[in-house]
Amino acid sequence: MMARVWDRLARLGQGWGGLGLWWLLLAVLALYPYIGVTHLTLFLGSQVFVLVILASNWNLIGGMTGYVDFGHAVFFGIGAYVMGILVTKSPLLISPEWGFLQALPVSGAAAAVFALLIGLPTLRLKGPYFSIAMLGTFVAMREIVRVLRPLTGGGVGLNLPPVLNRLGDYYLMLVLMGLVVSVMWWIRRSEFGQSLIAIREDEIGAEMRGINTTLHKILAFMIAAFFTGVVGGFWAWQNTFIDPDVVFIETRTVEMVMMSMLGGLGTVWGPPLGAVVIYVLQTVVWGRLFGIHLLALGILMVLLVLFLPEGILGMSGRGGSTSLGRLLGRIRKRAEP
């Protein structure tokens, strides 16, 4: 019974019904600030939206295309630094408030261009070698940012003008999240997304069927980098301070991986779900454990891979490769005569 409901839901998620429900949820979230909330909850809300966007984007390259990117935070960092440099050093921007909105797409575009440049060589690598190369890129970029003192402020970092607009932040991230997840939904249904999944399953086979794998991989990488860069720019603006160590931090990539895996790699709704679950865990449970939450992150990651590699949404038992999935599958089989 449960499993049948689960299957019905999974089918709904792929169709227009899923998108409809998603927009309904967005509408509810858009009304949320009008029912008497504080600045803090608005701030927390925008944080959750940021995590959802990050997880969805990582999932596009890591889950759908099958290129596990261990340095995806490099795009976040580039977005944050482009934002910081544009807002603090560029004379073109009229007022800080407008400057932010002008700089936001630029930070995304910078990340996408970097994705093109770095993706051309690294996306040729297979499996773990892509992961390691991206990790190397990530660390190298952190050191380069530290050394480019005149531009990036080096280890001292950059201070952005503090403009407090919690409501604006909330709506901006809400709109962006709605857009990103809708884009993912569209990609998953489109021929483009099917080609990405074909690349994940069998790259040589996909090439044989006439899919331009290089083009598809690069495009997916650039889309994922673009939104990650935009979110990085937003984060820099909201945080009002950036330095290499807070922006280029490995945990950010690890969180993206975790959230996608927890929700279900390669699914549309898994990463957002995983992001919310991880966020709730982090704030409610691990917030009380002080420094131990990163330890818990490591343990959770190993446990996830061991017992739930297909994530929450992959549990329906169709794959049947996990113990939990097998169990659910058995229950389903018993339910169906």
Partner: peptide
Amino acid sequence: ISAIGASFFLQY
């Protein structure tokens, strides 16, 4: 991915 998790676990 498990290895990354183990690495985190050891560090912390």
